[in-house]
Structures are given as C-alpha cells and as structure tokens.
Design a protein around this nucleic acid. Structure first.
Lengths: 211, 211
DNA sequence: ATATATGTGTACCAAGCGGTACAGATATAG
DNA sequence: CTATATCTGTACCGCTTGGTACACATATAT
C-alpha cells in the first residue's frame, strides 16, 4: 500500500522513517482541506467535514496537522504558494504598473470563477467575521490581505521612481483602490457572479487608472 | 414596572394585551441583536451572545422572535430600514447618476467606519461563508445584495433615458462596478481601514465614472 | 375574586463541536 | 526473532450549541 522507504515528514524534511508509514499524501489531503475551508470558511467547517473530504480519520488528521487551526494555516499557506495566491506574484512581475493591475484583475476574475474551485477568495471568506474563539484566525487573514496591499504599494512606488507612474500619483491610495476592487470581486464571485461580469468590473476599474 | 395598557405586538399591530406585559422593548433589544450579528456574523453569534447583549432570557427571545434565524432576518430588516441600509435609498434620490454614486460611496465610507457600529456591512459579513446548516441565510444575504445592485441599475437606466448618462453606457455594468467597490470597501472596513482611506477609495472609483 | 392569557427564569434536552485515549496494525533497526 | 516507533480506527471525553418544559409571576376581563 505504501512502498517508498523515503517519506516526507510534516515539515517537509526528508528522512527514513521508522514506524508504520502514513497511508495518505499530506499535500493531497491538505488540498482537500483547503477546498472545504475555501467554501465554508474556518468556522463553517467542522472536523467531520474535513475528515470526510480528506478521506482520513480524525486522529490521523491531528497527528499530521496538529489541530484545526494549524490545519487552516497550512491550507492558507498552500493557497498562497500553490493556489490562487500566486496570481499576485505573477502580476507584480509585469513591466508597468498598469500591466500589473491588468494582470491582477483579469487573472483574478478567472480564478474567482474557476469551476474547479469554490467561488471567491479564501483570504476574504475564510473568516470575515467569527466568534471570539476564532478572532486570531480573522486577524491572521487581515494581516495577509494587508501584506498583499503593501506588496502592491511597493510595486507602485517602484513604478513611480521609474517614471512609469506620474510623480504626483499616490502609490498607497492606488494600491488600496486596486485591492478594494479585488475584495469586492471576491464578494461578487462568492455571490455567484460570472466570469464575464467580473472581467467587466476589472475593465471598469482600469478606467480609473491614471494615464 | 410597565404602566402602558396599550402595547405593540411582534408584528407591530397595536392592541390591548391581556397577559403579563413584556418587560423589554422589542426594537431596542432587536437593535442589540443586530449589532452582535453585525460584528460576529450569523454563525459566529451564539444564543448566549445574543441573550447577554439583549439583556433578556432565552425563552423571552424565542417568544418574541421565533428562533435564531427569524431573529437574524428581523435584524436584517432593521438594518435595511433604520440602519445603514437607508443610504442607498437616499443616494438613489440624487438628481444625477454621478451624484448618486458620489452620495453612495461617500456616505458608505462614513457609515462603514462609524465608531458607534461594528466595522463593515452586515449584508456582506453576516454570512459570506457558512456551514450547510446556514446556507439559506447566506442565500438570503446574496439576494438582498443583488436587489441593491438591481436598484442601482434601474436608477442608471433612468439616467440614461434622461440623457444624464451617455447613450452608449451600460447601466448594468456600471451598477455592478459600483456595488463591487462598495463590497470591497466593506471588506476593507472590516479589516480596520480608516474613514479617510475609504473616502480616498471612493474618489478613485469616481475617476472611473463616465463624464 | 376568579378565570384567562401572556411573559419570565430555572433547569434541562439531544445533537454536534473540537479533541484524545487506547488498542491493534505495520513499518524499520538490531 | 524482538524491540521500537509510528500510523489507524473505534470509541469516547467535556463542552457548547440551538431550542424547550414547566412552574411561577403579572397583566386584563368578567
């Protein structure tokens, strides 16, 4: 059932394991967990939802991921590094500020409405509100959204220094506006907006762009 | 403790009641409930949270409002009719499409950051995601947001007919863009954005406006 | 005064929650 | 082989959830 003698531990470190080998692939079941959290949010997802979707038992989940909160953070990391979160990095690599925004908004419109995934964005709908017990999760998500905004702001500051954005432009305000539109698009997608509708929103937002 | 012989029933109908009079004001405690839902969302709010904030016992809550779901819908109605939901109606009364949008976005920026209220918008953060059990609540909120969008679209269609908006403009796309920005602003507010920051976002969005 | 109707508080319910103890299964190391 | 280490499934834990039964209090109607 599991023939490899080399296995990956929870931390990704490779080692020769001694005990009984794990019968599932961590990344694979983490992907399942991410999708459930994505659809139902942190508190809307129960451990039963998770174990059913991941196809593993509760003790296996705890052995591999610690607890529900740690699993969620792992899912968030995966979302950022292997999922839709990669869009921003790609967009930032565009040569001009305008192209950065075009890439960001248009790719987002597609991703948010990808039929393979839950509609919307995990970092928005993971825990926009929550009970007191999950306040730290909510703040973690706020922090990550804010980091995305700061990355964009820095890219626009660079664009301004390069003369790509006018010298009287306001990188901070521009970044906040673009991020606000992306978050609005996420809410729209969550409510069932179509890809064409979101692309139209992206085009409207680009009309606000200087130059 | 309660001297009035004329009291209001749950439905607002006035009548002479026979039994023991209610010791609290329905609208007043509904307001408290609305604020808790507003801050924590539908599923993030427990009955214990509600009874503590409303200052009434659990059986009193059930007698007056039915159950948690009905209470939430009542809170939603109150939000729409006496709370921040009134902004849209006021904005729609403005004489031109542009002024409608200006009013909407600027009033929203203020309301979303009103220190007397939870940050953000109930109709967005009430249940952006949820467990299966609350799916009907989520859809109710989607429906209400969509109705707001349609109201705006109709106002823009009127503006187009009146020559206030160009004949080649697209009222549906314009309405969706504006609503998307409002929803993004709601997410921003929920994450702690300041009033000044949201007003700047509103101004950026207005730059995308035709004419 | 009595009957009737309604509200209030205590004390409870079944179900679901996140989390775990423990016994058995399966690998490696010697 | 035995010893050791890890994973798996069952079966449970205490706690919270939304919701209610019931006795008692307080009003009106007659």
């Amino acid at each position: 059932m599991y023939s490899d003698s080399i296995r990956k531990t929870n931390t990704g470190r490779e080692a020769v394991q001694k005990g009984r080998p794990r019968e599932f692939d961590c990344d694979q079941v983490l992907d399942k967990a991410m999708h459930v959290f994505w659809q139902r949010g942190y508190e809307g997802t129960s451990l039963s939802d998770l174990t059913e979707a991941m196809g593993i038992s509760r003790p296996s989940l705890y052995a591999a991921f610690g607890n529900k909160e740690e699993l969620f953070r792992r899912a968030l990391d995966r979302y950022a590094n292997k999922g839709p979160g990669t869009i921003q990095g790609e967009a930032l690599a565009e040569p001009t500020a305008r192209k950065v925004v075009e890439h960001l908004l248009r790719s987002l419109a597609k991703t948010l409405t990808d039929p393979c995934n839950p509609a919307g964005c995990l970092s928005v709908q993971g825990a926009l509100t929550c009970s007191e017990a999950a306040e730290s999760i909510k703040q973690e998500l706020c922090k990550r959204r804010s980091e995305g905004e700061q990355n964009l702001r820095r890219r626009f500051e660079r664009a301004k220094a390069e003369g790509d954005l006018a010298s009287d432009s306001n990188p901070e305000a521009l970044a906040r506006f673009v991020i606000t539109v992306t978050q609005g698009m996420s809410v729209q997608a969550s409510g069932g907006a179509s890809r064409a509708e979101l692309l139209a929103v992206a085009d409207m937002a680009l009309r606000a762009w200087p130059a």
